[in-house]
């Protein structure tokens, strides 16, 4: 199917259907609900931040393949990063999805999350890709 694999690539499909990050954390330091009232997607994002480092994160909830995989891959990308670095990565990801220019150095920081680059060509789904990232943004700002 033309266009299918540009968006629904192997990585995104794997994460959306079988995410290791879809679980609850033992003792999270922060927890935030993300909700998209238009489509009903709902995720609960948990983080464990210690000594200024995102030690771990996890999520529960339901939604489409894009929102589920975006959440899971985001967690992989941010795990182990310093809070300031994580904030920067979130900012770059949002810029990329909103079709703003990002440098190749910035792109490198995104790691696997770069898999969502083509979502910008599917404007109706941008909000799905961004749901967890905006939720994470709020969590990190709170510290």
């Amino acid at each position: 199917m033309n266009g299918f694999d540009d968006i629904y690539n192997e990585l995104i499909m794997e994460h959306s259907m079988n995410s290791f990050n879809k679980k609850s954390l033992q003792s999270p330091t922060g927890c935030q609900l993300g909700h998209n009232p238009n489509c009903g997607d709902e995720i609960e994002l948990q983080v464990k931040i210690r000594n200024g480092v995102v030690e771990d994160a996890a999520f529960t909830g339901h939604g489409c393949a894009i929102s589920q995989s975006s959440t899971s891959i985001m967690i992989d990308t941010l795990r182990g990063k310093k809070v300031e670095q994580a904030k920067k990565i979130v900012e770059i990801f949002i810029k990329m999805i909103k079709r703003e220019k990002i440098s190749s150095a910035e792109k490198k920081l995104l790691g696997d999350s770069v898999a969502f680059e083509n979502i910008k060509d599917m404007p109706a789904r941008v909000k799905c890709a961004l749901l967890s990232w905006h939720t994470m943004e709020e969590l990190l700002e709170r510290k």
Binding site: N2, F4, Y8, N38, C39, G40, C64, A65, R125, C128
Partner: peptide
């Protein structure tokens, strides 16, 4: 498969349909 994924992929094939709760959350 989530309806939003179905709708986006149908869109690639030129088929327009609605996916979501159709402004009927209590029914869902």
């Amino acid at each position: 498969v989530h309806p939003h994924d179905v709708a986006s992929l149908l869109d690639l094939k030129g088929v327009c349909l609605r996916a979501g709760n159709h402004c009927a959350q209590p029914l869902m």
